[in-house]
Simulated assay, not measured.
Amino acid sequence: MFDNSRDLPDDLERLQTLRIWHALWLERIDRKAAELRRRQAQEERGRASRPPVPDWILELSRATGHPLAVHVGDCGMAGRRRRPVGQDEARRILATTGVPACPICRPDTSLHIAGLASPTMVALVRRPPRIGRRSQAKQLRSDHPVGDAKSLITCNDRQGRRTSTPLPTGRRR
């Protein structure tokens, strides 16, 4: 198959050049193959040393560290701050502390616990219901003793409290 001498040059100098060129390519190929073997071995060691996925996860608040929700171990909705918990502890947390179950992975169903916290995302966020700006302003204006409702500006101060201030004279809203 490769005995055909017509595809090779006739002089020794060009044959030596081809031999060096092919030797360099073989060395390059061998280096790349060794690098790939090393990388595959390293990934395999990483997979072997990776801790197993926990059965249950307790999601923690980023600000306070308090529990936010209980999740099944492979739930994608769990936040970054989490702590693995055992089955008994997950049951105890769901039943006694009032921490809600994730509405996506439903650990309460997997743990055979029924009728606990409502599985809504609002329960996970734990924010008070928002009132529209206009209704908040109307409420503040009606409670404010100074001036009529149209002459007040309502806004938040630095501590997050709602405040009302009179508009400058000559300008009505």
Rank of each mutant, 00 (worst) to 15 (best):
E43Q: 15
D11R: 12
A114K: 09
P84Y: 01
R82W: 07
I104Y: 05
P103M: 01
L111M: 03
L116N: 09
A149E: 15
A117V: 02
P129I: 05
R80K: 14
A137S: 14
H112L: 13
Q16E: 14
A123H: 07
P9T: 06
A90E: 05
D11T: 10
D143G: 11
D143Y: 00
S135T: 13
Q40I: 13
P51L: 08
L15C: 10
G65R: 06
S110F: 00
G79T: 04
S5A: 12
A149R: 13
R172W: 04
R38P: 03
D88W: 00
R62P: 07
K32E: 14
L116I: 09
V99S: 03
G98M: 08
P51E: 12
I29N: 13
R134E: 11
A69M: 08
G115E: 04
S151Q: 11
V122G: 04
D108R: 00
D55P: 04
L36F: 09
R62H: 11
P145C: 02
S142I: 11
E59I: 01
A117N: 09
H66N: 14
A123E: 14
C75M: 04
E35S: 11
T97P: 06
R82T: 13
T17Y: 07
P128R: 11
P129Y: 07
T64E: 01
G65E: 14
L18K: 11
S142M: 10
S118W: 08
D55I: 01
V122W: 08
L140A: 09
S61H: 03
G76H: 01
S142Y: 09
Q42T: 14
E13C: 03
I153R: 13
A69R: 07
Q136C: 09
A33W: 03
R45W: 00
A90T: 09
D7P: 02
V99C: 10
R133F: 08
E13T: 12
R126E: 14
T165S: 07
D55Y: 01
S151M: 08
T163Y: 00
L24K: 15
W21G: 12
I93R: 00
G46Q: 14
A34R: 11
R14T: 15
H71Y: 04
R106H: 11
R81T: 13
P145Y: 01
T169I: 14
A117T: 06
P128C: 04
